[in-house]
């Protein structure tokens, strides 16, 4: 009888610790910090070409990956929540690489070439390749 109680107590305690740990993880796990990650380096045009040619293949290579991208700034603006968004030029006038910055990249000029790091979230055909969580490199 005593043994039975002891086992039950141990099981309950283990359960509470595991449960507590899961809840703790949900509320404390840090978000990705792309500035600390090793990135795939490429140009805006190359990234677009990869998605245009074979979206499934490009998803394999770039989806959810840290990307260090260089390209010519076509235009910049702020999104509906006040973050800076830079569209990079590609050879297709209708398609851009759309990049949302996590940290303010400072003063930008259209036509200049910049390099930044971000996370690729995928491709919307006939519109853009999307990168978010951007931080300026140079």
């Amino acid at each position: 009888m005593k043994n039975w109680k002891r086992i039950l107590l141990v099981v309950v305690i283990i359960g509470l610790i595991t449960g507590g740990f899961i809840v703790y993880r949900i509320f404390t796990k840090p978000h990705r910090d792309v500035s600390q990650e090793v990135a795939v380096t490429l140009t805006a045009q190359k990234l677009y070409d990869a998605f245009k040619t074979n979206e499934a293949n490009a998803n394999q290579l770039y989806l959810d990956k840290a990307i260090e991208l260089s390209g010519e700034v076509l235009e910049f603006s702020t999104n509906q929540d006040g973050q800076t968004v830079v569209n990079f030029k590609t050879a297709d006038p209708l398609v851009v690489i759309n990049c949302t910055f996590k940290t303010n990249p400072g003063t930008l000029t259209a036509g200049s070439t910049i390099t930044f790091k971000g996370i690729c979230t995928g491709y919307i055909p006939d519109a853009n390749v999307v990168i978010n969580e951007g931080v300026l490199i140079k």
Binding site: I26, R32, L63, I119, G122
Partner: peptide
């Protein structure tokens, strides 16, 4: 993948 949550997990 563009959906941002308050909690990473």
């Amino acid at each position: 993948k563009g959906f941002k949550f308050g909690y990473a997990e």
